[in-house]
Amino acid sequence: MQLLMFYILGFGAVLSALLLVTSKKPVNAAMSLIATMFCLAGLYVLLDAHLVAVLQILVYAGAVMVLFLFVIMLLNIQEKEGRLAGSTIALQFVSILGVGMVFVIAASLVKVRGALPTGGELFPFGTTKAVGSMLFTEYLLPFEIASMLLLAAIVGAVILAKRRISDAKP
């Protein structure tokens, strides 16, 4: 059952990722990426990472992708904008490079024989309580730094996206 789910979700993730890199319109690309993220959330559930799976859907598929779609619709990009890299030779070269990359990583993994532990853990794995207590004790400083990073991102995004006062005047 777990194997079947892994294959369904993994196949779905790879398929929608391929749709993402070959899409010509930003909206189609965004929809493919959302599909990939849902498949990955399912894989996280298979790995007992329940909190991360919910965060994946809330933060990525929810917040980040809505931001993407919002910008796509705000910019109203014309059809001619969406195209792949110019020459077909460059496309083929990059594709071969990508396949080679997969093979190099897969070859380095041949000796990995990791059977994942299933069920019967000593403590509840990957629940909000377990991850939360870890975040607020052992990793408290990185957690606070992350909040500072988000604050800096908010300020930066507002400053970058706002119009200059001189531009606003007619």
Binding site: V21, R83, L97, M101
Partner: peptide, 12 residues
């Protein structure tokens, strides 16, 4: 790898 190929091939 799919993501890396996408960064190189997409112009948008």
């Amino acid at each position: 790898s799919i993501g890396a190929v996408g960064v190189f091939t997409q112009r948008n």
